[in-house]
Design a protein around this nucleic acid. Structure first.
Lengths: 341, 341
DNA sequence: ATGAAAGCGCTAACAG
DNA sequence: CTGTTAGCGCTTTCAT
């Protein structure tokens, strides 16, 4: 590997000049610039980003911190789509992306700050962690620039990107109400997800504005898991046969509910309408295909990266980005045929 | 940020000793070690991996090079699963993972070697590139340690992990033959995929061993895309109604073929048996669920990382790993009811 | 068992 | 426009 020193030697100039020429500084004559660049090419030079980072104290690298459930995320490839978006944006702005995977064992040994400082990332994007994650407190107070996905914390150094989950949920439920449903259950995620809180609000508000009483027993947590949702729904549907529609806080859970319905011989969508959330790939391929609230996960990633980098480069935009969701109507919802008593 | 210098000052020792103590060298007394580590904690020290990398000429970082089709990979999250596996293994062995995304524009500016040298990764894993990719020649000759996924190139510095695609395809076709099918078409990927070549071999061999003549017109490329496969299959099935089974080189394409069949009013599996390849998530969720050849994509990633790191650490294992595939029988294949004339 | 000194490859005052 | 000098934070001979 050749270094600027080699180039300097070969052209008979100082390393300073070489460095400046290679970085296209204005204060090097065009002629020497050419000569130096030529020599660099001949020597097959490529810059040592490590050395540069050391002196500049910038690595042009952003870290992506995802919780260990990474692998489980395979079913709904939410994380993957977010990652694609981040990767795209980072690439365009010439940043590198490094993946951190932590698990609770590691978290005990190394604090969030240590992790980041050690890796020398300029900033971090955090996705898929629960609101009770021990890292979260640290994040909020640390001085490492950071963008959270779907957790609304804002400070000088932390920002977030999310979607309007209240509205999203509201539209889902409104859709069901519009189809004549009034007995609408809700399978939510869990208490440590900010989106779950918001989607619950949306559900409640939609019912209220239609003067439909809220049945607490019809609101259950499914942990964002299809299995759990299936179990919960099985009990629920057996117990309350009057329910004609279920809103789920994720598509995966909606699939679980469909399975539960099938086993109980309840037909979807004839006897039971179901709307999911996320619009994962499966949603459109499954039978019946899923009516759902679509989130642009790729865009969330892209925006997160863009926001983070803008923060790194001292732009003073507000540290938050809000994306839209969209109701996608497919086969799993249908006009309510049971007359309301 | 505190440095070893600060620690040295605070305990009144030299930086050398501090460095050695922190790295648990044998030639530092237990007592001073303790003192130094204590001071490190108090000063909230965390090592600067950049500085260390600079002097050690090792970054403990591996790069993952994926082609631009990254985003398209969202449907079959093949890449994501591989990535999860790599990430897991890298994490366990305490390596960092950085993502490179290239596209043809960037490739023109920077050669593969430049890309890697600049990023200072110790080694690279490459997945999802075509055999005609310009980088490939460079890779084969470069001295950067590298592991390829599904491209069998081997040298001092390059290794690969793949599955037995001949056998996989053979088992798929044997399964169909076992069900009484003899008119079996094959939708392959494309000519620039090594796996496609191998799967074709497997298809041919399976037919040969059953004394079934090979029909060249029934072998088509679907580019690993569901749309292309759908089109191709539509024409094929209309033209040759005698076909009772189709083997596809990917599940995604199998889904395309099912769609084509549906549109032609050909029932799957009653009138047409279909077997896919990969066992992506969709395969088990779709109706009818897909009989397929399962590849453990997570494992491929894991093994690739493990192999690469073993190469980096000068282990002399053979630079290749071969994984098994498994036939998964689901709903899309069925006994052939049409009697062979 | 500890320290002094050199150097990894690069950038950035400062001086000319 | 170019060169001198210093230093980023760390590891590693080589002495002591």
């Amino acid at each position: 590997m050749s270094t600027i020193k080699d180039i300097a030697k070969s052209v008979g100039l100082s390393v300073t000049t070489v460095s400046r020429a290679l970085n296209d500084h204005y204060d090097v004559s065009e002629k020497t610039k050419q000569k130096i660049k030529q020599a660099a090419k001949e020597l097959n030079y490529s810059p040592n980003s490590i050395a540069r980072s050391l002196v500049m104290k910038k690595t042009r690298t952003i870290g992506l911190l995802v919780s260990e459930l990474f692998r489980e995320g395979v079913k709904d490839n939410f994380t993957f789509e977010v990652l694609s978006g981040i990767n795209k944006c980072a690439g365009q702005l010439d940043y590198d992306l490094v993946l951190f995977s932590t698990n609770s064992a590691k978290q005990k040994v190394k604090t969030y700050t240590q992790l980041c400082k050690e890796r020398r990332v300029d900033g971090v994007i955090i996705s898929g962690i629960k609101t009770n994650d021990p890292y979260l407190k640290e994040i909020a107070t640390s001085d490492i620039p950071c963008v959270l996905i779907d957790i609304p914390i804002k400070s000088d150094t932390v920002g977030f990107v999310t979607t309007d989950n209240v509205l999203g949920a509201k539209e889902a439920v409104r859709h069901l109400i519009g189809l004549g449903h009034t007995y609408i259950a809700f399978i939510n995620g869990h208490e440590f997800a900010h989106v779950s809180k918001k989607r619950l609000e949306g559900y409640n508000e939609a019912l209220e504005e239609a003067n439909i009483p809220i049945q607490k027993e019809w609101i259950l947590d499914g942990s964002f898991s299809d299995e759990v949702a299936e179990q919960k729904a099985a009990v629920l549907l057996k117990h309350y046969p009057e329910i004609t529609a279920v809103f789920c806080a994720s598509d995966l859970m909606a699939l679980g509910v469909i399975r539960a319905a099938n086993k109980l011989n309840i037909k979807v969508p004839e006897d039971l309408s179901i709307v999911g959330y996320d619009d994962i790939i499966l949603a459109s391929y499954v039978t019946p295909s899923l009516t759902t609230i679509s989130q642009d996960k790729y865009q969330m990633g892209y925006q997160a990266a863009e926001l983070l980098i803008s923060m790194l480069e001292n732009n003073t935009d507000p540290h938050q980005r809000l994306l839209n969701t969209k109701l996608i109507i497919r086969e799993s919802t249908k006009l309510n045929t049971k007359i309301k008593s």
